[in-house]
């Protein structure tokens, strides 16, 4: 079955079985291997991607259901300024160990910062609850996201002052 959508800015057309998940499609033919499969039933968050700008589980999304959609994986955010800050913060705060949860965690954190701006720690942790990390115990991740969030807020307010 044919499906066409935009993957990281490039229009693609794929001929897939209806049962093919978005994750399997982008990992296979298109080599977007930042999309990791940790459970294939929508709990662990390692496969998180953006569909039309909203985070989604690519393991429980059928590729054929995405005709006309805009799909973005971590590969597609290579030049994104907020993602660059997040990557730097994850490194500085030791927010990763084995790296398997990291792409999904980054995309979730990116979404959280864009949607919510400043958050108290408890809310930030709730926002990351759908991404399992088995290595870090989350402390470095939480610190990294908080730091990137602060920086984002500062940048935003600086930008709005400049605009006035």
């Amino acid at each position: 079955m044919k499906v066409s959508f935009t993957l990281n800015g490039d229009p693609i057309t794929a001929d897939v079985e209806p049962r093919t998940s978005l994750a399997d499609l982008v990992r296979g033919e298109h080599r977007c291997t930042s999309v990791h499969l940790g459970c294939e039933h929508g709990v662990c968050g390692a496969c998180t991607v953006l569909i039309d700008g909203k985070i989604a589980r690519s393991c429980i999304t059928l590729a054929v259901s995405l005709d006309g959609a805009m799909v973005t994986t971590l590969e597609g955010l290579a030049d994104d300024a907020l993602m660059a800050r997040l990557r730097e913060a994850f490194r500085t705060h030791h927010g990763l160990q084995c790296g398997y949860c990291t792409p999904g965690m980054l995309i979730t954190a990116h979404d959280l910062i864009r949607r919510k701006g400043a958050l108290a720690e408890a809310e930030l942790r709730q926002g990351l609850a759908g991404n399992i990390c088995r290595c870090t115990g989350y402390a470095g991740i939480v610190a990294a996201v908080a730091a990137a969030m602060d920086e984002h807020e500062t940048t935003k307010s600086a930008a709005s002052i400049a605009a006035e």
């Binding site: 291997t33 930042s34 590969e75 994850f90 490194r91 790296g99 398997y100 990291t102």
Partner: peptide, 21 residues
């Protein structure tokens, strides 16, 4: 010391068994 291995994981370029092509 910040980790040498972080860069590839943060770019999504870690290569795990399922990623081998």
């Amino acid at each position: 010391v910040l980790r040498n291995e972080d860069a590839r994981f943060l770019a999504g370029h870690g290569e795990y068994l399922a990623d081998l092509d």
